[in-house]
Write a protein that binds this DNA or RNA. Structure first.
Length: 849
RNA sequence: GCGAAAGUGGCGAAAUUGGCAGACGCACCAGACUUAGGAUCUGGCGGGGCAACCCGUGGGGGUUCAAGUCCCCCCUUUCGCACCA
């Protein structure tokens, strides 16, 4: 009988997250204001903590768990530090998977998406994440996407949104167009196996290139962003300064294809040009091909080689091929005729699709000229007059030779002067090219934001028949129709819905057809975080004063896979909104943190590898607190994390130890609190010292490197100290006040990492109020100070012994103590002490001979 | 090819400024307790050696009283860029 009672008591004292976590989850759900941000007048400094919003696939994966565990720890810490914290969450809810699911399960995309959102939101609640759900944003709902349309019209009015016919990237699997940013090595970003085709389509574009320089220059000031991300964006923008120079085609060309404009960054070498190289798709190459079937076939072959190279991952490895067209172009600087070639390595979509080839001063040109026996003419020499090995590509400390009136100029100076001369003489100009292209946003898909444009069939003054008319604000939103049949066939699904397609022109009232394409989903995520500041606004995307209070985001946290797409589009959007007068900030986020991947057995978790660990499974087994805490403990957050389930079990055991201690001493803590720590025992002193050292350590981690793995290790060490002192505590050698102080602060320090657990323990030790609103403890330097320290003593740099000295010992005392040590004495016996190095508080090194 | 980051026990890792290498945890080993268990507690745990000691942070050199940390060369892995004119 008594045995059963003991067991019962034991079981109760055992940490049981399955009981604790749902209990607190229910309490928090019943108090929705718990995590709500306060207004501008809170008197507290603001802190906007943001994690990237997920796509509602229906299931959180471990990468999400890690991302949110980091953000949640930070948000809770900042609250405890007395900040007014905005910590929102939302759903990037438009996109292709919903349509695929519709095909597969015959479920409408909206229904599927909303169901997934509900499921994932429940998972987030189970995780105990501190989101303010009153600001939830769901991008597929009209109260959000109407503002996409509003922005689109604003951009159209300012010439930032425009239509043009162009070659576009077409993914046969997505059955839609992709932005350049969504094409990786010639393949679709969603379908790694699928080669992207080029098609001619009329598409809507956003003029991101207008901001190319600002997007580039702004990177310099984003010191809170990882250098890696900044470099990736710099590469992506790909700014290149150079000159355009026209080479006239010698002789007759039937087709009206004009002259050949080359782009070069080294116009100073133009006297050394020995050929002109065209892309296979260049208009002049096409014109020549039209007159010569044999040549046409060769050019066709070059194009095929190029396309094949683009499709492979090894673009740089392809062998350069070219074909001589037999025609000549005139170098406008020299009047010289140089042969026109077509090369498989010349890209139609970079620069002008044509280059001048200067073998003496360009490695690639040198290789090509050597292969085909083209001329090599040196026109640059080192300043010191030495004879350089070719190709000689330096532009610093080099001067022009054999270059007419430019001879003797430095390369850099010649570039300036020759570009300006070309302009004066009408055959060229200085220019800047970018790798960055305007953002094609049209998608021939259903599940996205309808583009708010119509085509007026009859036309009206200022608009030709079939011309574009933007819808006025009063006509927004254009609702996305429901009950649309989703098929895999090409073309926009909206085009098949007559009620949607046919409308009236908002200007003349005549018949009009709606634009049936929808927007790229990256539009949705380009400004969603502004909506959080004012999520319920029905009159504007957000109120400026609210955005200006919260922005820029203090800390943005997410995966590095968004380094280019999302993070460049949202920077662009911010600049547009600033120019619309809606916000004051130039950049969306002050600091960006990119966490590492979660891997298992050395590889990224994926269904195909069968190494996926489900967060739900972990939570069911070990609880959300242990799962989250493990995600923070296993590695520093910026590094990849190897998921080991035994490690989660370890964290669970640790929480169990804390639980046991807290419950064991709960009575003592509740009843025995003294107003002051007046009579400290030795045990008190030891434990309090460790406590305050731990507080200092964890506070430093939050303020600095975010190495929460070491923060948690420090808390574990503190617990180990308490366990080690348990016998002394039980024997009455510790004062209840000290134990209370330690347990109280211990719970506070656990709060950012294990919130359910902390809430439970807070209550258990008799504390009132919300643990997450209790001020973060401040380390007491006096209490943290050691009165005796250990000093390693080395002889000739090798450790001999560790001695204990009073913490305030001066150099001479430490030295004396070291020399007095028996082991040290034995080691240096019979030798001369050459030098004694004493590093106060660190070590002693005796140099002996 | 160019650029960046990384390489430390059986594993995840720590060492923030050049100052005791391996904190903390996992796994493992030994023991205790016991309603035998995927519970809890205690101890051990880089390698060699009975030991004193010796060796040890991818490899090789260097600077220094002292190097995981700084410098030079090389190797490996990951990431980014890659006919960009």
């Amino acid at each position: 009988m008594s045995e059963i009672e003991t067991n019962e008591a034991e079981r109760q004292a055992r940490y049981n997250p399955a009981e604790i976590e749902p209990k607190w989850q229910a309490r928090w759900d019943a108090a929705p204001d718990l995590y709500a941000a306060e207004g501008h007048d809170s008197g507290k400094p603001k802190f906007y903590c943001l994690e990237m919003l997920p796509y509602p696939s229906g299931q959180l994966h471990m990468g999400h768990v890690r991302n949110y565990a980091i953000g949640d720890a930070l948000a809770r810490f900042m609250w405890m530090r007395g900040h007014n914290v905005l910590h929102p969450m939302g759903w990037d809810a438009f996109g292709l998977p919903a349509e695929n699911a519709a095909l597969k399960n015959n479920t409408p995309p909206r229904e599927w998406t909303l169901k997934n959102i509900a499921a994932m939101k429940a998972q987030m609640r189970r995780m105990g994440l501190s989101y303010d759900w009153s600001t939830e944003v769901t991008t597929c709902l009209p109260d959000y996407y109407r503002w996409n349309q509003w922005f689109f019209v604003k951009m159209f009015e300012r010439g930032l949104a425009y239509r043009k016919k162009s070659k576009v990237n077409w993914c046969p699997d997505c059955q839609t167009v992709l932005a350049n940013e969504q094409v990786i090595n010639g393949r679709c970003w969603r379908h790694e196996e699928t080669i992207v085709e080029q098609r001619d389509l009329t598409q809507w574009f956003l003029r991101i290139t207008k901001y190319a320089d600002e997007l580039l220059d702004g990177l310099e000031n984003l010191e809170g962003w990882p250098e890696k991300v900044r470099t990736m964006q710099r590469n992506w923008i790909g700014r290149s300064e150079g000159a355009l120079v026209n080479f006239a085609v010698d002789g007759e060309v039937k087709a009206d294809c004009g002259s050949i404009t080359v782009f070069t960054t080294r116009v100073d070498t133009i006297f050394g040009a020995t050929s002109v190289q065209l892309a296979p798709e260049h208009a002049v190459a096409k014109a020549f091909a039209a007159e010569n079937a044999e040549l046409a076939a060769k050019i066709e072959a070059l194009l095929a080689e190029q396309q094949k190279a683009r499709e492979s991952d090894d673009l740089g490895g392809i062998e350069k091929h070219g074909v001589n067209t037999g025609r000549f172009a005139v170098n406008p600087f020299t009047g010289e005729k140089v042969p026109i070639w077509v090369g498989n390595y010349i890209l139609a979509d970079y620069g002008t699709g044509a280059i001048m080839s200067v073998p003496a001063h360009d490695e690639r040109d040198f290789e090509f000229a050597t292969k085909y026996g083209l001329g090599i003419k040196r026109v640059i020499a080192p300043k010191d007059g030495s004879e350089p090995e070719l190709p000689f590509t330096a532009e610093d400390d080099a001067v022009l030779i054999d270059s007419g009136e430019w001879t003797g100029l430095s390369c850099v100076e010649a570039q300036r002067q020759m570009a300006s001369a070309a302009q004066t003489k009408g055959f060229g100009e200085a220019t800047v090219t970018y790798r960055l292209k305007d953002w094609g946003v049209s998608r021939q898909r259903y599940w996205g934001t309808p583009i708010p444009m119509v085509y007026c069939e009859n036309g009206h003054p200022g608009v030709e028949p079939g011309g574009v008319v933007a819808l006025p604000e009063s006509a927004l939103p254009v609702f996305l129709p429901e009950n649309v049949e989703i098929t895999q066939e090409g073309g926009s699904p909206l085009g098949k819905i007559s009620e949607f397609l046919h409308t009236k022109c908002p200007v003349c009232g005549g018949p009009a057809r709606r634009e049936t394409d929808t927007m790229d989903t990256f539009v949705d995520s380009s400004w969603y975080f502004y909506r959080y500041a004012d999520a319920k606004d029905e009159t504007a995307p957000f109120a400026s004063e609210k955005a200006n209070y919260w922005f820029p985001i203090d800390q943005y946290i997410g995966g590095v896979e968004h380094a280019i797409l999302h993070l460049i589009y949202s920077r662009f959007w911010t600049k547009v909104m600033r120019d619309l007068g809606m916000i004051n900030n130039d950049e969306p986020a002050q600091r960006l943190f990119t966490q590492g991947m979660v891997i298992k057995d050395g590889a990224k978790m994926s269904k195909s590898k069968g190494n996926v660990v489900s967060p739900d499974d972990m939570i069911a087994r070990y609880g959300a607190d242990a799962t989250r805490m493990y995600a923070l403990f296993a590695a520093p957050p910026d590094r990849d994390l190897e998921w080991q389930e035994e490690g989660v079990a370890g964290i669970s055991r640790f929480l169990g130890r804390v639980y046991r201690l807290a419950t064991k001493y709960a009575g003592m803590i509740r009843d025995g609190r003294l107003p002051h720590l007046e009579s400290r025992t030795q045990t008190d002193q030891l434990l309090l010292r460790r406590l305050h050292q731990t507080i200092a350590k964890i506070t430093l981690d939050f303020d600095g490197r975010w190495h929460f793995n070491t923060s948690i290790a420090a808390i574990m060490s503190l617990i180990n100290e308490i366990v080690a002192a348990e016998a002394a505590i039980d024997a009455g050698q510790a004062s209840p006040a000290a134990i209370a102080e330690i347990m109280r602060n211990l719970v506070l320090m656990l709060a950012p990492f294990a919130p359910f657990f902390a809430a439970e323990m807070w209550e258990e030790i008799g504390e009132q109020g919300v643990v997450f609103r209790t001020p973060w403890p401040v380390a007491d330097e006096e209490l943290a100070r050691e009165n005796e320290i250990e000093i390693p003593v080395q002889v000739n740099g090798k450790l001999v012994n560790v001695i204990k000295v009073p913490a305030d010992s001066d150099e001479a005392e430490v030295k004396a103590a070291a020399l007095a040590d028996e082991k040290v004495k034995a080691r240096i016996e019979g030798k001369n002490i050459v030098k004694v190095i004493v590093v106060p508080g660190k070590l002693v090194n005796l140099v002996v001979k």
